[in-house]
Amino acid sequence: MASRKTSHPNRDNGDKYSVLLPTYNERENLPLIVWLLVKYFGESGYNYEIIVIDDGSPDGTLEVAEQLQKIYGEDKILLRPRAKKLGLGTAYIHGMKHATGNFIIIMDADLSHHPKFIPEFIAKQKKGNYDLVSGTRYRGNGGVYGWDLRRKLISRGANFLTQVLLRPGASDLTGSFRLYKKKVLENLVKQCVSKGYVFQMEMIIRARQLNYTIGEVPITFVDRVYGESKLGGNEIVSFAKGLLTLFATT
């Protein structure tokens, strides 16, 4: 027991990490992702809070979130629901208004992003004092699970095309597992206008444009355990439109 204190060397350095979890129909996944977050933050000893931004899910995600709040405490789990489904960008703005941390972590709540990487993100950020740290599926030990050849080909092809056209200085543009300094995220969100996939891409392109420094950590991306993953013609068309818009405007 005496060693308890020394096993949490990260707790008192004043940094606090606010995890923003936008949810829509994630009642299966939310308890699991929260459990994993609590586990890995507990082990690494960093100060944290989890902000659940539920967009009026009809499946009762909010009710599950309330139960989690009772289990883990109101200082750890914050609920900031909205009445209906609105854009991702506004979800971040909404969540950040209530965030007390000086760092913000954004990730998907569908378990494709594993909280075990968060301590690595934090270590990376501290090492280079980066303005943002982005998870990457395309480098080092990073990768994906549950993708067939077609999906891999589209992903790699789209990524290559984007690298050639935009030279963004980051390897994973459409991933949404990232850590930001709070001020940096506030500034970026204000400037970004795109939706969906393209929003994540615009964030990192604008970050480069504003001379923010970007660190990268390889992550494994385990595609949706529960629920359907989508990549149809619509996504590809909207990606292409977004890419061309960024090509012409940034």
Binding site: G143, Y145, R156, G157, T220
Partner: peptide, 20 residues
């Protein structure tokens, strides 16, 4: 380049197992 990257795209079976 794209062919090589598709061929060497890591399949994270371990990660999926761990998650389960």
């Amino acid at each position: 380049t794209v062919g090589y990257r598709v061929a060497t795209f890591n399949d994270c079976d371990e990660a999926a197992k761990e998650l389960q």
